[in-house]
Write a protein that binds this DNA or RNA. Structure first.
Lengths: 191, 191
DNA sequence: CGCCGAGTTGAACTGAATCAAGAAACGTGG
DNA sequence: CCACGTTTCTTGATTCAGTTCAACTCGGCG
C-alpha cells in the first residue's frame, strides 16, 4: 500500500511514524467492474484511493443517472458531503473498470490528528486542493461552452476518453447526443 | 468585534483563551461604497467578516465584469484560491454598500493552530462548509435553469434583491437582459 | 435641467435539448 | 465461438432557453 504514501508525500512530508499510523487505518479491496464501493443511503466512513481501475460517483437526478466525479488511477474518491457531515448520502460510488482500491477508514484517520500534526496538515491540504478544484470546475461550467469543457477535460487526462460517453456527458452537464456531436466535429477539424 | 466570535461559536465551541487569541489577529475597517477591500494582482492575507454592508468578489472575464460571490452582513469573504495557495489573485473584493468589516490576518491566524487546536478545528469546519456550499452551487448551475437559480437565490436570502441587477446576472451566469426578463415574468405570475 | 449608467423591451440568432430512429458494440447463453 | 438481445452511440429534424445587438425609458446626480 506504499502507493498512497507516495501520493500523500506530494503534499506533505511524513515521518516514519506518520506513515505507519496512516497505514494502520488502511486496507485493500479488489473490486469488479460495476461493483459499488458505496451504495445509496449509506453514510461515508471511507476515503478511497484508486490503485488501479476507474471509479465514478453518481446519483439519480429526476430519474436520470448523473456522474458527479471520475476517479482514475492514483486519484482519491469519497462522497465528500456525507463524509464531512456524517449524514447519509444520496450518491453512490461505482467501479467503471475493475481494479484495486485502498480504503482509508476516515474515523480512525481523523483520530490521528491530535497525535500527528503532519497528518492533520496533510488532510487540510487535501481538502483545500479538492475545494480549489471544485471552484475551478464551477467557473468552467459557468463560462465555457460544452465543447470547450470537453476539450479541457481530455487535455487534463486523456485516460478519460475510455470512459463510456454517457457518463462523460452527464459529468460535463450535457446530453449524450450533444457529446457525440462534439466528438464527431472534433474528428473533422481537430485543431 | 464580538460579532465574529459569536459567528465562530456556531461552528466550534471556544475557550476564553481561544477567543482572546483570535481577537488578537483581528482589526476593524470602515469601507465606503465602491471601495476595494482587495485589488487585482495582490496576494490574499486577510479573511473578512462583514459586520455591516455588502461586498462582492469579482473579476474580468474577456473584458466583462463577473461577480463570483456576494457577502452580506454576517458572511465571511476572501479570495479563497489566493489565500490557500499564496499566489497573486486575478480577483478583487469590492464593497457594494458601505459598511464595516472585521479583518482577520490569516497568517497570524494560521500560526495559532499549533497552540490552539480548537482554532484549527474551527478553520477546518469553515473550509468544509465553504467547500460543501461550492459543490451545491456547482450542481445548481449544472442542472437548474436560469429562472430556477434566481428563485433559489432570492429564497435563500432576499437581502440579495437590493444588489444591482447586473452583478446578480453574472453571478447567476446569465446576461442582465435575461435576468430582467425573468424578473418581469415573475411579476406577472409570482407562483 | 440634461446627462449617464442601469434597467427594460424587442427581434433575430444560436448552442444545446429533445424526440425519434438506425447502427455499432457488448455480453451472455446455447 | 457464434447468435441474439440489450445497451451504447450516432445522426437527423425540431424546439427552446438564453444570447446578442439595438433602441428606448427611467431615476439619480452634477
Amino acid at each position: 500500500m506504499q502507493e498512497i504514501i507516495i501520493y500523500f508525500e506530494q503534499f506533505q512530508r511524513l515521518t516514519d511514524a506518520d506513515k505507519k499510523a496512516i497505514l494502520a487505518t488502511c486496507s485493500l479491496r479488489n473490486v469488479d467492474k460495476r461493483e459499488l464501493l458505496e451504495d445509496f443511503g449509506s453514510t461515508s466512513k471511507i476515503l478511497y484511493f484508486i490503485k488501479s481501475g476507474t471509479a465514478r460517483t453518481f446519483y439519480y437526478k429526476d430519474g436520470t443517472d448523473v456522474t458527479e466525479y471520475f476517479a482514475l488511477e492514483g486519484d482519491l474518491v469519497t462522497r465528500v458531503k456525507s463524509m464531512l457531515t456524517q449524514e447519509p448520502s444520496l450518491k453512490a460510488i461505482e467501479m467503471i473498470e475493475e481494479g484495486e482500491v485502498i480504503m482509508i477508514n476516515t474515523l480512525s484517520f481523523f483520530d490521528l490528528f491530535d497525535a500527528f500534526p503532519n497528518i492533520e496538515r496533510l488532510y487540510r491540504i487535501l481538502l483545500q486542493n479538492a475545494y480549489i478544484e471544485t471552484v475551478d470546475r464551477l467557473e468552467s461550467i459557468q463560462f465555457k461552452s460544452a465543447r470547450e469543457r470537453y476539450e479541457a477535460l481530455i487535455n487534463e487526462d486523456d485516460l478519460i476518453q475510455k470512459v463510456p460517453l454517457k457518463y462523460l456527458a452527464s459529468y460535463l452537464g450535457i446530453t449524450p447526443e450533444s457529446l457525440s456531436r462534439i466528438r464527431a466535429s472534433l474528428q473533422k477539424k481537430p485543431f
